[in-house]
Amino acid sequence: MIIADEHASTRMRAGDGSDAAGASSRRALAGRRGARRGAMVLLVLAQVFATSACGAGKAMSEEAVEISATVRDANTRLDIEWSLHNRGQRSLLALVAPLKHNESASEQTIYVSRGEDGAVVFALRAFAADGAVATLDRIGAKPLAPGQRLQGKAHVALPLRSFEPYRSAVDIATPATVRVCIGVIDADARFPHSSRQADGGVATYHDPALVKLQRVVCSAPVRIEGRR
């Protein structure tokens, strides 16, 4: 950045017997110039800081991953459809496939729990056990390249009961609205896995290491269509 000095063309002249006054004027002008330069430096620093802050905010914005979902009441169950879109620049893995211990697909394909705010949440993400467990539950992660969209369906029986790794099921009253949340991790993240698939997906474990790596993206509240 070039900062123009608006007084660059000013010339100081000293008359007969006015050297002291001229010197004083020059010092005053130099002081004003210094003050202006100082103000401009502070302004530049403020702009740099603001730009850095915006960049940090964008870096923490879930990598521009967007999720949308619909939930329909089908009398004996809720039918859930979700879509996950990677609008960012990083390749990701989406934790969207609950697995049995032998890595076959789980009979229930989405987790059901209550969020910290008490809302009912249908989630595809990593969970951590509260204490030591004999066997780690598993989940599959699917590749999600920049610009790519993943879509899926799930069904949850009514009346609702919670379904989470390492926790006993409890009854949950069916609300009018729910949230759908999905966990993603960087494709090059280092985490424990039990196998890799040909499509770039992996089978991994519900454990604290994976929980720390994941970023959970949630939909806005979704109204249950057809709910009486």
Rank of each mutant, 00 (worst) to 15 (best):
S9F: 08
S9Y: 08
S9H: 10
S9T: 14
T10C: 01
T10D: 11
R11C: 07
M12A: 00
M12N: 02
R13T: 07
R13F: 08
G15P: 00
G15V: 02
D16K: 08
D16V: 13
D19L: 09
D19V: 02
A20P: 03
A21W: 07
A21T: 08
A21P: 01
G22S: 11
A23L: 08
A23C: 04
A23E: 15
A23R: 10
S24Y: 15
S24P: 00
S25D: 09
R26D: 13
R26M: 09
R27N: 06
A28T: 14
A28V: 11
A28E: 08
L29Q: 10
L29D: 11
A30P: 09
G31S: 14
G31K: 05
R32H: 06
R32K: 14
R33G: 06
G34P: 15
G34I: 15
R36M: 15
R36I: 04
R37E: 02
R37T: 00
R37F: 07
A39P: 06
V41C: 00
V41Y: 07
L42Q: 03
L42C: 00
L43S: 02
V44L: 11
V44F: 13
V44S: 07
V44M: 06
L45E: 02
L45C: 03
A46K: 00
Q47A: 11
Q47I: 09
V48G: 15
V48A: 06
V48T: 05
V48D: 06
V48R: 01
F49H: 03
F49I: 04
A50H: 01
